[in-house]
């Protein structure tokens, strides 16, 4: 309030409104109501999923979707996990393998490349960076088809490698890491370590990776989710259902529902299980989604 008194010349029409108490309350109610409406929209499908995973196939069709009817959550989940010799667990393990290995390797490669582009000057550096940036803009699905043809040519389609190897490349990660390393890694520290006789690899492993860790968590999360959610690449590459990730497996169940109605129930239960780990990941690691995002968008 004192500030308002200090600068009477600049205070204009806003002054009267600032003193009234009721509009602020009304404003707060309006904002909260709008946010609540949005929350209903985003949570309704999730709520439906939680209710529906407790139902049998006939319950799915025969009862009101937004309320429980004869709930059997544990039996249903057990049925999902044991159906077809536990194939769901195998798909789950495959998804973890693809997303974890692909995410870790992609993050380390992006960290090294981003650091190299940020802290070493060499001829053609900007050209290299622009090629990587162009890679960010290429639709992943436009690559999947020719990738399949290439892997098929060398006899490597329908293997774990055919999904893993392309997942290890993250141009967006390189972009984020370069911007982060430029801003966060001090040149003086690198110089001091070099004078102390540390090797370049040693400096990277012991100093740079540690300083860059907030950006690395962000890059890893992005890549993990991208691989976990990926559908087109495994669909194109894999024909053996033993290699399927969850996304592909669930879609195959959903596609058979007209012949085997029990698969409705399994698809719903499987969908429920598949979103659990990522939701936990998002809630627990939410603050990391912030770090690095800003650095990424400032220069765009």
């Amino acid at each position: 309030m004192t500030a308002v008194v200090d600068r009477p010349a600049t205070v204009q029409s806003g002054q009267t409104r600032r003193h009234a108490g009721t509009p602020a309350v009304r404003y707060r109610i309006l904002v909260t109501a709008l946010l609540a409406v949005a929350a209903v929209y985003f949570l309704v499908p999730v709520y439906w999923l939680v209710v529906s995973m407790t139902k049998s196939s006939s319950g799915l069709f025969g009862s009101f979707g937004f309320w429980f009817a004869d709930p059997h959550p544990i039996d249903n989940l057990r049925a999902v996990l044991t159906y077809d010799h536990g194939t769901y667990l195998r798909w789950f393990a495959n998804s973890v393998l693809y997303a974890l290995v692909g995410g870790v390797v992609a993050t380390l490669l992006a960290a090294a490349a981003g650091y190299g582009l940020a802290k070493f000057s060499f001829r053609g550096r900007e050209a290299v960076f622009n090629v990587v940036l162009a890679g960010v803009l290429i639709p992943g699905t436009a690559l999947a088809l020719p990738l399949y043809l290439m892997f098929a040519k060398v006899g490597m389609s329908n293997t774990y490698w055919s999904v893993l190897l392309p997942s290890m490349v993250s141009p967006f990660g390189v972009y984020l890491c370069r911007i982060y390393a430029t801003a966060a890694v001090p040149d003086g520290l690198l110089e001091a370590a070099r004078i102390d006789g540390a090797s370049e690899l040693g400096i990277f492993r012991r100093i740079v990776l540690r300083i860059m860790s907030p950006a690395l968590v962000t890059v890893f999360l992005f890549q993990f989710v991208a691989i976990w959610n990926n559908f087109f690449l495994p669909l194109v590459m894999l024909s053996d259902s033993k290699l399927y990730p969850i996304t592909l497996g669930l879609t195959s169940w959903f596609g058979y529902t007209d012949r085997q109605p029990v698969l409705y129930q399994y698809t719903v239960g499987g969908a429920f299980l598949s979103v659990l780990p990522l939701m936990v990941l998002m809630v627990v690691l939410q603050r990391y989604w912030r770090t690095g995002l800003t650095e990424g968008s400032v220069k765009a």
């Binding site: 499908p45 959903f254 939701m279 998002m282 809630v283």
Partner: peptide, 19 residues
């Protein structure tokens, strides 16, 4: 609210489509 709005990003596209 922020968590509620962000949750769907963790649902794979095909699972969201099935839902």
């Amino acid at each position: 609210f922020r968590t509620a709005f962000f949750l769907p990003y963790g649902v794979p596209g095909v699972v969201a489509s099935i839902l």
